[in-house]
């Protein structure tokens, strides 16, 4: 990561629009939305200097940012691969074979849960119910849901990822 951490002027503009959603003096409410923006802008995870920078923008103590960032599962506290495969494994997905999908990913990528492939392409992140229970098994990739998965469909998605053809945003 480069020495100075700063949002681009466009992103900074977006950040100020977020802050304007709340009444005077309630700007701390912007913390979680801004952390989403920061995670996206600074490599998919929240390093300490990034969190410090967000604290500075909101004029709050760094600890107020750390305690929030570590609470929510969507914020990554360590580097992740380019494609984070978030596979739901809660009850309804389990009934429709999510474990088989997870096993298939574990073997074909040769990584364990939470690990990243050596080439930095994929991170496997088992997830809890993502609100797609009727379209199980499923996984989230960036902003999008991939539903009604089969092993073949998963292979296809992995291949498209390698070719850089899967949209994350």
């Amino acid at each position: 990561m480069s020495e100075t951490i700063a949002f681009t002027p466009e992103t900074l503009d977006q950040v100020h629009q977020i802050i304007a959603r709340y009444p005077e003096g309630k700007h701390k409410s912007a913390l979680i939305p801004i952390l989403h923006v920061a995670q996206k802008e600074f490599g998919g995870w929240l390093a300490v200097p990034v969190m410090d920078y967000v604290a500075e923008i909101l004029n709050i103590k760094p600890i107020e940012v750390y305690e929030v960032a570590t609470f929510y599962s969507m914020f990554n506290m360590k580097p992740v691969g380019k494609y984070v495969l978030e596979v739901c494994r809660t009850g309804p997905c389990m009934l429709n074979g999510s474990e088989k999908i997870l096993d298939h990913l574990r073997t074909s990528l040769n990584i364990k849960d939470g690990e990243t492939t050596p080439d930095g392409m994929f991170t496997l992140k088992p997830a809890e119910c993502l609100g797609a229970c009727g379209y199980a098994p499923m996984m989230q990739l960036g902003k999008f849901y991939h539903e009604n998965l089969t092993k073949e469909k998963v292979d296809e998605i992995l291949e498209l990822c390698r070719q850089g053809q899967v949209a994350l945003d």
Binding site: I32, L35, E67
Partner: peptide, 27 residues
């Protein structure tokens, strides 16, 4: 009307945890 995204925490569906989260805190 504004839309506020959470960040992955079932507990934030409980109404007072939701309000804490909306205030920029842990749920």
């Amino acid at each position: 009307i504004y839309v506020q995204r959470g960040a992955g925490a079932y507990i934030c569906g409980e109404e007072t945890a939701l309000l804490e989260s909306l205030e920029g805190k842990r749920g």
